[in-house]
Amino acid sequence: MHEFLLYSQIPVTRHEQVLHILAGVCAAQPISVCEQHLIYQQLKVADAAGSKKGAPAKHQSAQAQRQSYHKLVREVSAGDGEQGAWRFRAEDVPQPGVQAVISRPVEERLLDQAELEKFREGGSWYRYINQFITSTQRFVHNNVIVRVSRILSVPEGTGALEPLDAPPLVLADCRPVDPSGSYLFEAYVRVEDGTNSKLTEQAMSELMALKSQLEGAVDLRVPDRLSLDTRVKGV
C-alpha cells in the first residue's frame, strides 16, 4: 500500500473551528477514533524482514536491509476499555524526489496470534520502545482521509512489563505529548498499488485539491522528509 500525506498543526484554540470547517467541507460529521500505538524496534532484518513484509516489491529497497521501527496499532475505546485486534504497521521512509507531498510505501495488516508472539518481551525479533495514544476525529472527503488527532503519551512506566498484555489504559491519565495541546492534522490518500501511475496521479490531485480548498483555514504543508524516517540509527 502507498500513502500520500500532507500535514498541519492545529492550535488547541482553533480545534473546534477546524472541525466545523471540515464538517462543512466533507458534508459529514467526524468519527471519533482512539488508537493505541506501540513502537517496536526491529532486532533482526534481512530474510526475516523480507518474509514478514510479504510485499515483494519492497525487497530491493534499502529499507529492507536496515532495521526499522515498526508499530502495532489497535483501536481502544475511551469509555469501556474495549480493545480491537492488533494491526501491524510498517512505514517506509518517504520517497525522496517527491516534493509536493509525503509519499511513502506502507504495510498494514492484521496480526494473528503466532506473529504477535514475535513482539513479546524476550523475543529475538523486536524490542519495545515506546507507545502513544491518538485521539482522533476522522473525516473522509472523496478519497482523502483527514485525521485531526492529539497525540497522548502514556503514564510513566506503562509499557515496562508486557505492553501487549497491559490492562486497558485509563485515558484520563494520558497527557498530550505537545504541552501546548496542539492537534496533528493529517490529510492522506491511500493507494493499494503505488506503481499504478493513474491511481497515484489521481491521489495526488485529490490531495492537492483539498489543500487548495482548505487554504487560509488550514495550511497544509510537507514536513521534513527525514522527520518520518523509521530507520534505526546507530546500529
Partner: peptide, 26 residues
C-alpha cells in the same frame, strides 16, 4: 478543562512530533 494542556505555550515543531510518532523518541 484538559489536564496537561497549556494553550499559552508554543507548540512543538511538527517535525519533532512526527519524529516521535515514527521512532518513539523525543
Amino acid at each position: 478543562a484538559e489536564p496537561g494542556v497549556d494553550a499559552s505555550r508554543p507548540p512543538i515543531a511538527l517535525e519533532t512530533l512526527l519524529r516521535f510518532t515514527s521512532t518513539g523518541t523525543l
